[in-house]
């Protein structure tokens, strides 16, 4: 088990995150806001729903760092991709290989707002479609904050080891297929630890959940220009991008 000697490797770490505010501007952006005049009623309603979202959701996460398995990709005829040591997970594709180029270790993470978010969305779908739309936007903003919080823990961990991290890269970006969701969740034991499951079409449930892959580096990695849009499968249709905005700060 040579990989055990690699710096930064750590078994899955569970965490819950206390997040007591959601950026209102971000929620409005998700709602397609472009400076329209908002009535006081709508204003108050958005605040109320954001409050409900914060109250009902329990952001939690799990993250771990694995070593890189050798050989894979180096041999001729092997498909491009990155294999993890100590996990039955190969991240296929040229884009993720590029993302992890030069990384000495690989971090996996998953965060979720829990089943309470899913229940709230279903309840609102039946009772109040408008609040569902606002709740959905607020929850999107909140799950991003949860992912930030998990990433922050990882960055602190990496820092303590004298390592650097790059951006969060999610299944579905570029040519990294959604089919890696299952082995990725298994490598983290996220189904048991977080209650995050998959539909047959590899969508995460609770839907307000995320998974991501990051590289750990001995030298500060070059940051991508313009965030992840370049590799995002949704970029052609993205309503945020069409306004010159990003889904992540």
């Amino acid at each position: 088990m040579a990989d055990a000697q690699v710096r930064g490797i750590i078994p899955p770490q569970r965490a819950s995150y206390v997040i007591d505010a959601i950026d209102r501007g971000e929620v409005l952006r998700y709602l397609g806001y472009r400076g329209q005049a908002i009535t006081p009623e709508l204003d108050a309603r958005i605040d109320t729903v954001i409050g409900t979202c914060l109250e009902e959701c329990q952001p939690r996460g799990i993250w771990a760092v694995f070593g890189r398995a050798d050989a894979q990709g180096g041999e001729q005829g092997q498909p491009e991709g990155v294999a993890l040591a100590g996990a039955r997970l190969v991240l296929p594709g040229a884009d993720i290989a590029r993302h992890l180029d030069g990384a000495c270790a690989i971090a996996l993470m998953s965060v979720t707002l829990g089943m309470a978010s899913e229940r709230a969305l279903q309840r609102l779908a039946l009772t109040n479609p408008m609040d569902q739309v606002i709740f959905d936007a607020a929850a999107n903003a909140l799950v991003e904050r949860a992912a930030d919080a998990a990433e922050a823990q990882l960055v602190a961990h990496a820092h303590a080891q004298g390592l650097y991290t790059n951006d969060r890269y999610a299944p579905g970006y570029g040519d990294l297929p959604l089919t890696v969701q299952a082995p990725l969740l298994d490598a983290l034991d996220a189904r048991k630890a977080l209650g995050v499951t998959l539909t047959p079409s590899n969508m995460l449930v609770p839907s307000k959940s995320e998974t991501a892959v990051l590289g750990l580096f001995t030298q500060p990695p070059a940051r991508r220009e313009g965030g992840m849009c370049g590799v995002c499968a949704m970029s052609d249709f993205c309503t945020l991008r069409s306004q010159g905005l990003f889904c992540r700060r």
């Binding site: 472009r34 329209q36 009623e41 958005i46 408008m130 739309v133």
Partner: peptide, 12 residues
Amino acid sequence: GTFFLPQLMASA
């Protein structure tokens, strides 16, 4: 574009 989505829904 003078209304955004929540306004459309509030009216509905």
